[in-house]
């Protein structure tokens, strides 16, 4: 890019910074409020506390059960991400390279799942879980979310597989390698970037999922963070500092993952969206 392009007019730059600050302003306020005491807050939303009240976090973690919700979120997210990717790789391999009856129809059926919102089928899903005796278990939250990840994981990974250089696969086939060998030892290593991007997505979606745990789990012991936050809000509407400390607990892992992987994240996102 020529150097003159780098000189963006100041008003335009300021506009951009204005929007930038607008996006992080609520989060800064959240962070500030989470270390205030109730009396601090009563003195005004923008007033600094005399000293930081980190006990709000302890209060949220223990009394507000955010500790329980946090570990529940981990127990749910990890299996969802792992199994979605494993099953997604197999399915993607199938759709990318293999033939089977009803391939096109099955693909359409898969994409339907991407477009129909979970709200539309949550009621039958609830009854199914009940029939299987799975309501109020981790499985009730994990299984549907793996299933829901299948369409995106398949499409995302299949298109990544199709973009692999033909020569490499050709070479492997000429070597007489078995299909399983090609998948695990030739394709998979090349798929690491795509899979890690997918993992990041699945992590964020699962971490943020609201409706499935809202309906399928009603035991506090199995609630995940966003749900916990909702029920916590009901109990502590008035205790805004602890509520905001809870919100920080919910979003901190996301922000952390985002800051570490943000290049990968944005690249993967835009690549995925460009199709």
């Amino acid at each position: 890019m020529s150097s003159q392009l780098n000189r963006t007019a100041l008003p335009l730059r300021l506009t951009l910074w204005f929007f930038g600050l607008l996006t992080i302003f609520p989060f800064s306020l959240l962070l500030l409020t989470s270390v205030k005491s109730q009396p601090d807050l009563m003195r005004g939303a923008f007033v600094l506390p005399d000293y930081p009240h980190f006990e709000n976090y302890l209060h949220a973690w223990i009394d507000g059960h955010f500790g329980v919700y946090f570990w529940n979120s981990i127990f749910v997210v990890v299996p969802v991400v792992v199994f979605s990717i494993v099953l997604g790789v197999l399915l993607a391999f199938g759709f990318a390279f293999l033939s089977f009856p009803g391939r096109k129809a099955l693909f359409v059926v898969l994409t339907i799942g991407m477009m129909v919102p979970a709200e539309a089928f949550i009621i039958p899903l609830y009854y199914e879980m009940r029939y299987l005796g799975l309501t109020n278990t981790y499985a009730a939250v994990i299984l549907p979310q793996i299933a829901q990840s299948m369409p995106f994981a398949t499409i995302f990974l299949a298109s990544a597989m199709q973009q692999l250089p033909d020569e490499i696969l050709e070479a492997a086939i000429l070597d007489g390698a078995s299909r399983r060998h090609i998948l695990w030892h030739v394709i998979l290593p090349l798929m690491v970037p795509a899979m890690s991007t997918l993992a990041l997505f699945l992590f964020i979606w699962t971490w943020n999922e609201f409706l499935i745990p809202l309906i399928l789990v009603n035991d506090d012991a199995y609630r995940t963070l966003p749900l916990g936050m909702l029920f916590f809000q009901g109990r502590y509407t008035v205790n805004t500092p602890v509520l905001t400390a809870g919100a920080v607990i919910v979003i901190a892992p996301l922000v952390l993952a985002y800051l570490i992987f943000q290049r990968k994240f944005i690249a993967g996102l835009t690549a995925g969206a460009g199709k």
């Binding site: 898969l110 339907i112 799942g113 299948m150």
Partner: peptide, 16 residues
């Protein structure tokens, strides 16, 4: 390759 994922999908998304 395709059945495990499809079965899960059928059971918890498409079926519902």
């Amino acid at each position: 390759y395709i059945l495990p994922g499809l079965i899960l999908y059928a059971a918890f998304v498409f079926g519902p």
